[in-house]
Design a protein around this nucleic acid. Structure first.
Lengths: 134, 134
DNA sequence: CAGTATCCGAATTGATACTG
DNA sequence: CAGTATCAATTCGGATACTG
């Protein structure tokens, strides 16, 4: 890092966003799109759990304290409609539904890990600064 | 990847979060904390721009179409209070204020790039799935 | 079991006008 | 120039009750 200027950031946004960033363009920026998807209240957690093994609906519901069925469904549906999660229905009685990461979803775990490691490494520092500021 | 099970996801959340994830604990999870910070509407964009070179307030304002002074200030203040951005006031007339990434902020560009590359590589696929679902 | 339906409060963002 | 103040609109998320 700090080779002088923008070696790092260049790779962040230089998939031809011109410098004066029109927000219309920016909204279609892949990075923001993905980031905003992944970063709502429950998505990351669900991806992580599904990264371990497939889960049934109520299994997820039980695993995550505070997550209502409404938000669980909503979050899974978005993930599904983005092709990150796969939903399989077993027509048993009572019905059983299994959710698992698609290969695409699984591949996302990798870059997410880089960010996770950064977060783990630097979170204390952030919190410290935050408290000085507070 | 896909060595069998959770090689990837393990590094995501195994800083000792037990499997039944209590949300109280999860809210203090460094990963989510950082993700939620970075992923509001303007933060990533501002970090990216500041990663190129320091900017003055109105320089950022002009650079990002659709960003109101209110949100610009708010976003910068949060970044500052997290120690990712540094604010320097030059007591000229009229006043001039420069924002730049701190070393901590700059170090965040690196993992962000990993995610950015994933996003660039897979965004088309996501969009395609989305449209089939829509 | 696996959801859906409904209602409501909270948080986020935008628009705009004003100030040291 | 670099913000702040105010108000309105939208979106997000929680609680709860109900259904095939």
């Amino acid at each position: 890092m700090s080779t002088g200027d923008t070696g790092v950031s260049a790779s962040l946004h230089d998939h031809r966003l011109p410098m004066p960033v029109p927000v219309g363009e920016y909204d279609r920026c892949p990075v923001t799109d993905v980031l905003r998807r992944v970063s709502d209240k429950w998505t990351l957690l669900l991806i992580t759990l599904l990264g371990r093994h497939p889960h049934r609906f109520n299994e997820l519901h039980r695993a995550v304290e505070g997550l209502s069925p409404r938000m669980l469904t909503r979050t899974l549906r978005v993930l599904e409609s983005d092709g990150l999660v796969e939903r399989e229905v077993f027509p048993t009685l009572p019905p059983s539904v299994e959710y698992r990461l698609t290969p695409l979803g699984a591949s996302l775990l990798e870059p997410l890990s880089a960010l996770a490691e950064w977060a783990v490494a630097h979170h204390a520092e952030i919190v410290a600064v935050r408290q000085r500021t507070a």
